[in-house]
Nucleic acid binder design. Sequence first.
DNA 1: CTGAAAGCGCTAACAG
DNA 2: CTGTTAGCGCTTTCAG
Lengths: 326, 326
Amino acid sequence: MASIRDVAQKAGVAVSTVSRVLNNNGYVAADTRQKVLHTMEELDYMPNEVARNLFYNRTNFIGVMVPDIAHPFYATVIKYIEKELYHHGYKVVLCNTVEKSDREKEFVDMLRRHIVDGIIMGAHSLEIEKYRNLNLPVVALDRIIEGLPNICVDHCKGGRLAAEALLHSGCRNVVQVMGYRKVQSYSEQRHIIFSEVMKSHGVQVNSVELAWNLFDFQEYINVARKTLDDMPDVDGIFATDMVAMAFIKLLLERGRSIPEEVRIVGYDGTSYAESCSPSLTTIVQPMAELGKTAADAVLKLIGGQTLETDQILLDVELRQGSTTFS
Amino acid sequence: MASIRDVAQKAGVAVSTVSRVLNNNGYVAADTRQKVLHTMEELDYMPNEVARNLFYNRTNFIGVMVPDIAHPFYATVIKYIEKELYHHGYKVVLCNTVEKSDREKEFVDMLRRHIVDGIIMGAHSLEIEKYRNLNLPVVALDRIIEGLPNICVDHCKGGRLAAEALLHSGCRNVVQVMGYRKVQSYSEQRHIIFSEVMKSHGVQVNSVELAWNLFDFQEYINVARKTLDDMPDVDGIFATDMVAMAFIKLLLERGRSIPEEVRIVGYDGTSYAESCSPSLTTIVQPMAELGKTAADAVLKLIGGQTLETDQILLDVELRQGSTTFS
DNA sequence: CTGAAAGCGCTAACAG
DNA sequence: CTGTTAGCGCTTTCAG
């Protein structure tokens, strides 16, 4: 593999001259430039990015940590992170943290090891404590980590919209399925609001907790089955899209009609919600915007700028499906 | 940020000594080691990975190119690629090539620019021609690119299994939905076999072609609608999981019963297939194995080894759902 | 306009 | 066992 020195030698110029035509800066005579360009072509030269990165003290990589890449929510957000970053010359380094909380600490060390220039943290960060308030280019994605700027979705509104949808559809006895409690997560706020709104209207609210925020449909089926067995009179359900689909499946199997007997509101707005039958009424998170905004935020931090606010709150909306009355 | 020189200076030793304790090689007196270790602690030292990478001429990154990260098939495969790579000290650099065929060339250049050590190519590679037979650490994932080793799924068997399932369920007039033709893809082989098997049993096969291999559910719905309008007598459908779900939705809306009137076999075995209602009979691709195998293959190439075969073929199987008779 | 030289942070001979 | 030195491939002063 030809190096800059090989090019210089063959072209009969100094390496610095080659460097100058490479980066298009400094003065270089037209014919010298041509000669160098030609030699590069001949030698099929490609600059070694690692070497320039060492000099510039950057890598053009952004680490993106998520609990599960295969979950449609994260997969979609990452798609848009990648897209935005790409337009700015950065690349995404993936880190799936599922079942490996210590991987998070390790991943954050990537910043100090100069493996990545910044981090978008979409995972539960137990070990991130020591990096708080350090003004490192790290942003939290859809979760609140003290001392880190975050890009979140208005989950309070999400919870309220879900409650209103079920209320409007005439529910009197609902159940909501919540994430794993131990993982203190801002997004779970929606369940507090949901509960408040429902109760203020005299509706009975039962809460079921998942054992773990894992993406495992069979597990969801189990939870749904147990819930329906324990509370046969439930007439409304509020849960993540995928959990909601488990309920749909079970309810249909048991011959219950949707939405006549039971109404369901999902959360996330993944493609699952629109592709299933009946299509799920769901609270949609703006995944594209979330990704783009998070990407822009780290980029800004890397550029030495500061974010105007510690929290950027994105809007949610309800997408009407066939599991509630419109 | 403290460098190795700072540590050496403060500890009163040479940089090479620090380097030795860092890498645990060469002889270092126990107390010298302690002193150095202590100083590292004090200075909160972290080695600069870019510098060592420059020396070692590697990066520990593997580029993974896919047409669409958000597609559940790719998202899942990537999850397992990441997992396997992680265990070997490598990280995944993502590249979504959707609607940007020139990004592929650029991405392949990453190899020569020393941005990544290897590439797993899960995208349609129009521009990869010049890299053929170069013995670079590049493997094709679920597609055949001449001159590149590939890890594929036995799509012929997949097509046959699908045909047999529909045959067994009594179909006499089926339609199969194929990917975009222009993108010459090995995985489309299944449709040839499918067609052959069906026809050899005297079954009428119609083929519908998608305009683009894009992941867009609304588009799938349109295709399904047009297909059902054009061929109202269809009693069997063979399509990707997501396309199959569009058919399910439309058929149910039109009051057709599944599988009594129309039977459906999906392809991919994504989580969509099991979470929808009725659950989809589908040909499942071994996504976990696919990811692990591809990762191991690039790693092997990077290690200078050669693969025993140019093609590694993984098995598929049928997962029985409720859209066919069992 | 161009070349020589120093240096980014780290590793690996090679002498002591 | 430890320090000195050269060098990975590139960029950037600094002199001409």
